[in-house]
Nucleic acid binder design. Structure first.
Lengths: 336, 336
DNA sequence: TTGTACGCGTTATCAC
DNA sequence: GTGATAACGCGTACAA
């Protein structure tokens, strides 16, 4: 691999001049510029961005930590993050935490060692010490899919509480009273927890007694949703409607209901959360609480970039709008 | 940010010794080792992996170029690639080409400038000069979702031809004769092209005249599938069955059929290609040709890693098995 | 407009 | 077992 020095030698100039034609071509006379360019061709010179970063102390790299790229909603926000990052000359290193705090913690270390300039994190634990450490050390990071709306940490997210409330309310308005919730584990998803609060609050305000037996916490997976709903449906007093903490689980739940011989929406209404691109393409179309994932990725990255390089930054909390998208998995309660 | 020199000074040793306790602790006496470790704590020392890579000439980074992370099948292979990479101490930079040759080409340059040690590419153009350049320069790369089974380029893929054949054959066996194909554009997806060859061959072997009007090339998207099928279904002699070049399009097609008032599988059979995790969770379950995407990602990465660092390597072609997964979107032709 | 020389944080080589 | 020091490829004062 030829270096800037080889090019300089071939072109008969100094390395500084070569560096100039790379970074500030106008600062070099046209003649030498051309000469250098030819020399680069001859040497099949490849620019070394790492070496540059080494001296400028800028890696132009961002770290993105998500639970798993396998859930399409995270693919959407990832794409948003990547698109903006690339537009600004950044690349992103992707990492999956699998909703495990230890992995998240480990990944943060690994990525920092790699000199990422900032981190986009969908955190597993808002209260854990990893975020506090980042904060204390002044390392730039932004939370994605965040529940916070104040405090020292910058974040982009939606109001999960009101989202959970509206999802439940929609079911209540349809006449349902035995409304279950399939939740992601509260221990690793405060988003799920917030949605649950909204769910509970809505029940209370509508005079419906909260029944803990109707709430199942489980893994945020297709199989998890399928399994959980089967247990729910085989109970002695099964629900007539279910609010799923995300669309991904909801897909699993739909499948589980089908296998249990329960028709949707005739015998069971389902509301999801996220509105993955796919959710409007399945049949029946999934009623859900939409959160703008792609936008979230973009905005989070924009926010992060605005923090990078600045010694002091005012934390920003960007709460995006959710909306109830009514499709075909919800219907009026029969005999209700 | 404190460096190895700060630590050395505080511990009263040389930088070489600090480096040793990091990379080969046994080579240092227990006493000094402890002293250095304490000094690292005091300095809140953070290891700089980039600086190391700069001298060892190893970035421990891989580049992964896919069409788009938004298609869940690529999320699966990406996860496979990441999992193996991480196990081996590598991180991966993700990049989307959107099936565009120019972007692919540009990304290769950008990633190489960043000193990735190797590239995993789902290429848009097998014949383009970018791969030839990589080859000529001896840069390590492996093709994913590849159609090739010989030649100088290492690759992991499946037999798309036989996959296309079997998908079509399944429909023929069900009594269908007007079988359409929704294909990804041949210009950017030779996979799609190979599947089409299989499709054509199967028709021919079963005495079915090939009708070009039944083949629609289009974008590999949900909307693309939906749009294309509507055109097909509104023609004067519509198909009774459709082979979709991937599951993602197939989802779009199912939605398009529904909107056109055509019931699946009663009035229209659909076969996909890929078997995304979601495909078995939707309703009706998608009949499809399964390719092991997660495995492909892992295997491709393993292969790439085995190439890295070796000056000469024998190209390896790993063809994985596909399988026909019969679910609910295909049925016997009525009045057939 | 161009060149010289130093430094970035680490590893590797060679002494001791 | 430990230390001194030259690299690695590049940007950037500063000088010319």
């Amino acid at each position: 691999m030829s270096t800037i020095r080889d090019v300089a030698r071939v072109a008969g100039v100094s390395t500084a001049t070569v560096s100039r034609v790379i970074n500030a071509p106008e600062a070099v006379s046209k003649a030498t510029r051309e000469r250098v360019r030819r020399a680069m061709q001859v040497c099949r010179y490849k620019y070394n961005a790492l070496a540059r970063g080494f001296v400028t102390k800028r890696s132009h790299t961002l770290g993105l930590i998500i639970p798993t790229i396998t859930n399409p909603i995270f693919a959407e926000s990832t794409r948003g993050a990547q698109d903006l990052a690339n537009e600004k000359g950044y690349q992103v290193i992707l990492a999956n935490s699998d909703y495990e705090y230890d992995k998240e913690s480990e990944l943060i270390d690994v990525l920092r060692e790699r000199q990422v300039e900032g981190l986009l994190i969908t955190t597993t634990s808002l209260g854990g010490k990893v975020l506090q450490t980042l904060l204390a050390e002044g390392f730039p990071f932004v939370l994605l899919y965040s529940t916070i709306r104040k405090g020292p940490i910058s974040a982009v997210g939606v109001d999960n509480y009101s989202g959970g409330y509206r999802a439940t309310e929609h079911l209540v308005n349809l006449g349902h009273r035995r409304i279950a919730m399939l939740a992601g584990g509260f221990s690793f998803s405060d988003r799920s927890h917030h949605r649950w609060f909204g769910y509970k609050k809505c029940l209370a305000e509508n005079g419906i007694t909260y029944d803990p037996a109707l709430v199942k916490q489980g893994p945020y997976t297709l199989a998890g949703g399928k399994e959980a709903i089967k247990i729910l449906l085989s109970s002695e007093n099964p629900p007539t409607a279910i609010f799923c903490s995300n669309d991904y689980m909801a897909l699993g739940a739909m499948q589980g209901a089908k296998e249990s011989g329960v028709a949707i929406p005739e015998n069971l209404s389902i509301v999801g959360f996220d509105d993955m691109a796919i959710s409007s393409f399945i049949s029946p179309g999934l009623t859900t609480i939409r959160q703008p994932a792609y936008e979230m990725g973009r905005l989070g990255t924009e926010l992060l970039l605005s923090h990078i390089g600045k010694s002091v930054t005012r934390p920003t909390h960007n709460m995006l709008q959710t909306s109830l998208i009514i499709r075909e998995t919800t219907a009026t309660l029969r005999n209700g």
